[in-house]
Computed example of a mutant assay.
Amino acid sequence: MAQHNTLGSDAEAFAADFLTTKHYTLLEKNYRHKHAEIDLIMEHRGLMVFVEVKFRSGTGFGYAEEFVDYKKRQLIIRAADHYIHEKDWHKDIRFDIVGVYKDKEGTIRFKHFEDAFY
């Protein structure tokens, strides 16, 4: 597995743990539908939350939320729509972004953007 794939998988695991400490319940990891993938699908306070996780080892090239462009959002929305129908979900949903940042000392930090897009 390429290093960027390992870093992405680690970031998703860190983000899932982070959200779990905030009382989110993990429903699915790496849900795929056609060309789209949803990193995490969580439930929180009656909402189904679709989470895009972005890892950054610094902010020199930009922040995590800047890397979820229009095309990526549309793919996530389509996959979420498929998942909602597959699970027969009739409650509210939300799309979040979790930025996972590693500082120079190796400390992992998080930036959680609730209701980041739709």
Rank of each mutant, 00 (worst) to 15 (best):
D39R: 00
D88M: 06
K29E: 14
T59M: 11
H23T: 15
V68C: 13
E86C: 04
S9L: 14
A116L: 06
T20R: 00
I97H: 03
Y24F: 15
V51T: 07
T59H: 10
F50W: 03
R45I: 04
K87L: 02
F61C: 10
V68Q: 06
T6K: 14
V51K: 00
Y24T: 02
K71E: 13
A36Y: 02
G62H: 11
E105N: 13
E12I: 03
Q74N: 14
R73D: 01
A116K: 03
R109M: 15
H4N: 15
Y83L: 04
I77M: 11
H35W: 04
D88T: 06
F18E: 10
F50G: 00
V49C: 09
E114Q: 11
Q74V: 05
A64Q: 03
H44I: 00
H4C: 08
M48Q: 13
G60E: 15
R109N: 15
L47T: 07
I84E: 02
K71Y: 09
G99A: 08
L47W: 13
A13I: 13
K22R: 12
A79F: 06
K29V: 04
Y101S: 04
A64L: 08
S9G: 14
K104Y: 15
Y63D: 12
A80Y: 02
A15N: 04
E43Y: 04
T107F: 13
E52G: 07
H112E: 10
D81I: 00
A16M: 08
K29H: 11
H90L: 10
D88N: 11
G8T: 05
D17N: 15
Y101F: 15
R109D: 15
